[in-house]
Design a protein around this nucleic acid. Structure first.
Length: 414
RNA sequence: GGACAGCUGGCCGAGUGGUCGAAGGCGCACGCCUGGAACGCGUGUAAAGGGCAACCUUUCUAGGGUUCGAAUCCCUAGCUGUCCGCCA
């Protein structure tokens, strides 16, 4: 959630920041009006409530003194009727306000570059040089099938399209990657946490997936539970509704989960292979920080993911997302894109975001500093998407005969 | 899934109709003490919203009800615990 007070006090500036994130001016105006209506309704209600409280005190006093309360009772009853109406009105305003603000995205940081879509993202730097091949490198699905690592057909048989089965050395590589990533992150100071892969509505609202993106989520029939689209949801919401002490921050966590996404609207993109699956594995980094720590922790998280790729010997580049490509809750994001020789292009393998206090305001994650309760900052980043890492390993380390030489750092995990 | 018990501040815990946003303790902060610390002593310390402030409103799991007035009484839901059933 954005800070409504900021919009109220600093309308032009906040509105233009929101418009950089493709929010319509109509919606912003609507938000402002809704907030003002709500404030007025609250003030009216509270004034009358104060009167009611006073009358009630008086009533008790009259009773104690043995005075007649008939007249007072009439006044109190009338007042209560009005109060009931006012409360109803206030609730309506609250609902209206809620409906809007929960769908307003986070403000982008000032220095996030303007842009329409991923084409306007800005490359920060490249790490490692893409390998050259004396033959035409194959795409990963070809290699996966040839090595018997991934069975796309039988995944469809078991579930539906965009599900696959990994077996043999492929399955072992998957497990090795997960363990390697978790250990690597732990050595960088991220505590390993194992979390539920089903979460409730409140958790998804906290991190911003709901109410706006319900179509992207798998929901359990007959229960208010959803399959998580990312470990960011349970990890961040671990501290939902809590007031932490400043000294225990930053909290830096890593966790491995499966992730489930409907991929609604992705149309015919990446239908082949395991780039875009309904179920995939991911090792995630999540940090809860003080406001003044989040930039430094952000850098640590980006470095962690990038170094992980380097340790695996995977060429990649860092990209600053432009305003148009920034996610709903993110104030800034750096994507890591891994080189895929088969596709002859860089593809996203990690995304590190600072949401600042956007999620913390929704999830009520606060910390106490000098007697004050302040909203924490939350950050998340993949390190890494396991399926895509497998794709990258296959394509980058393929030999002419289709065999794959696995990175040496994985030796002890295989 | 069935029966019973419970849910109060950062945590524990007292509180059965107004004097209660709530005793006491822990924790935390500050001060004294100390070479420095621990211990001890003293003071302070729930959250959210509105207001420059005084102050006002709300909140004792949530929602509803009774009442002039609810942490307290009633109903419903959720969660937790215990026992039973089932089970990797």
């Amino acid at each position: 959630m954005i800070d409504v007070k900021l919009l109220q006090k600093n309308f032009d500036e906040t509105a233009s920041a929101l418009m950089r994130k493709k929010v319509s001016i109509e919606m912003i105006a609507e938000l402002k009006t809704a907030n003002e209506d709500l404030k007025t309704a609250k003030l009216t209600y509270e004034t009358l409530q104060a009167k009611q409280n006073e009358l009630s005190r008086l009533f008790g006093q009259y009773k104690k003194e043995g005075k007649n309360t008939d007249e007072l009772k009439i006044e109190v009853d009338t007042n209560k009727a009005t109060l009931t109406d006012l409360l109803e009105a206030q609730r309506a305003y609250e609902e209206a306000m809620d409906a809007i603000i929960m769908r307003v995205p986070n403000l982008p940081d000032e220095n996030v570059p303007d842009g329409e879509d991923e084409n306007d993202n800005i490359e920060l730097r490249k790490v490692l040089i893409p390998p050259t091949f004396s033959f035409t490198p194959k795409e990963h699905w070809e290699l996966a099938e040839q090595n018997g690592w991934i069975d796309f057909e039988r995944g469809v048989k078991l579930a539906k399209s965009r599900f696959s089965v990994v077996s043999g050395m492929g399955a072992r590589l998957e497990r090795a990657l997960i363990n390697f990533m978790l250990d690597f992150n732990r050595e960088r100071g991220f505590m390993e946490v194992s979390v539920p892969m089903l979460v409730n509505r409140r958790a998804l609202e906290g991190t911003g997936q709901l109410p706006k993106f319900e179509d992207d989520l798998f929901k359990v029939d007959g229960e208010e539970l959803f399959l998580i689209p990312t470990a960011e949801v349970p990890l961040t919401n671990l501290y939902q509704d809590e007031i932490l002490t400043a000294s225990e921050l930053p909290i830096k966590m890593t966790g491995y989960t499966s992730c489930f996404r409907k991929e609604a609207g992705s149309g015919g993109r990446d239908v082949r292979g395991m780039i875009r699956q309904h179920q995939f594995h991911k090792v995630e980094l999540v940090s809860i920080t003080r406001a003044d720590q989040s930039d430094a922790v952000f850098d640590e998280m980006v470095a962690c993911a990038s170094d992980l790729l380097s340790a695996l010997g995977l060429p990649h580049r860092l990209v600053t997302l432009c305003t148009g490509d920034l996610g709903f809750g993110a104030a800034r994001t750096i994507d890591l894109e891994v080189w895929l020789p088969g596709q002859n292009t860089y593809r996203e393998i990690s995304s590190v975001s600072n949401t600042r206090d956007f999620q913390a305001r929704r999830a009520k994650i606060r910390y106490k500093e000098e007697g004050k309760n302040l909203l924490a900052h939350t950050l998340n980043g993949s390190s890494l998407a396991v399926g895509r890492t497998m794709v990258a390993v296959m394509e980058n380390f393929q030999q002419e005969d289709g065999s794959i030489i696995l990175p040496s750092v994985l030796q002890k995990y295989l």
